[in-house]
Design a binder for these strands. Structure first.
Lengths: 194, 194
DNA sequence: CCTACCGATCGGTAGG
DNA sequence: CCTACCGATCGGTAGG
């Protein structure tokens, strides 16, 4: 028999955990902090989750799975490399706006995963980075992009979109669409006027 | 009477703390971890520092003071706005390579500062960001830069240089000079070939 | 889902 | 700079 209540309680714990981990870090968040946010005693949470690090793993891998599957879809389209990069930038911004705390945890707190989860996550991240880098490399080979160092281009783009969660507040002054357009301008066309 | 030994012991504690905070986070690093790294008992460190959070504050404000004073010097030169931005990018890369762990702590662990230090640090960061933004704004007004949203340009540049410490290993494949040149190309000229 | 509790570890102090 | 120790809090379990 399915227990929909148990599933949603677990989701609630994961969602509140993402918010707390984002604000105070994984080590800085106690199971009692989290229990208070969820509205139960710390001991009761163990009916829904196995351990503190299982919460962390669940958040991190949900996000990395999402990114990897989306990258696959975007890579498989017939668009130009410039348009594929733009689609990836939009993907990052959209996920950041819709799922901010979890994205933040996957970006910063993954290092507290215990082995072997830590190794698996690093592997997943490397898979994503390699797929992204392959698009940049192909764009250079096709003459679409400048012949820059691929790692520098990759991490400049990734860092620009990852840092959004640290300063961007939706609605205030800049809409998500304007944010996308401006980041694409800076990264693809450059700050300097030609 | 000056006690040069005490001063250098304190510096040693601060240097080792920066490395541990970078790797495990502030909350994830215990005073016993740190004491082990320094080569003394946890209790003995209190002869050199007042409290754990005083270590954090010392690291964070040393870095923020450095950035603010350097920004002032660069702003005061007669260079073009493009050259001023380039000089700031080089400053960030140089400090990252020379003082990586401390820069990393100032970028990530400042949020664990207790009040009123937390407010002071946020203020210092805002001062730096406003000075940087003023250069971008002036560059746009002078027709040197494209009319992009200033916040987007500012944080795209800042994030690109801050993220370097998470992936760049000096010497391997890419020298610091090549790194500088490539980042400047992507950020100022854009990835797409014109 | 709660009460009661475990052993371990935390930042920090007393006293020498 | 060390030994010895403090009260608080940690992640987690037993038992209901």
């Amino acid at each position: 028999m399915l227990k929909p209540e148990k599933i949603s309680k677990r989701q609630l714990i994961l969602a509140e955990a993402a918010k707390l981990f984002k604000d105070r870090g994984y080590s800085g968040t106690s199971m009692r902090d989290l229990a208070g946010q969820v509205g139960m005693e710390a001991a009761s949470m163990y009916n829904h989750i196995k351990a503190k690090d299982e919460i962390l793993a669940s958040i991190c891998f949900r996000i990395s799975d999402l990114y990897i599957s989306q990258l696959g879809e975007i890579s498989a389209t017939a668009a130009s490399y410039g348009d594929k990069i733009k689609a990836l930038i939009r993907l990052h911004i959209r996920l950041m706006v819709e799922d901010g705390p979890a994205v933040s945890v996957a970006n910063h707190d993954w290092k507290y995963l215990p082995e072997p989860k830590l190794g698996e996550f690093k592997q997943a991240r490397k898979t994503y980075e390699k797929g992204f880098a392959a698009l940049i490399e192909a764009g250079i080979a096709a003459g679409e992009f400048q012949p820059v160092n691929v790692s520098v281009a990759l991490f400049t783009i990734l860092s620009a979109v990852r840092w959004i969660e640290l300063w961007y507040r939706p609605g205030r002054e800049l809409s998500a669409e304007e944010l996308e357009a401006n980041i694409i301008t800076v990264l693809l066309h450059g700050l300097e006027r030609k």
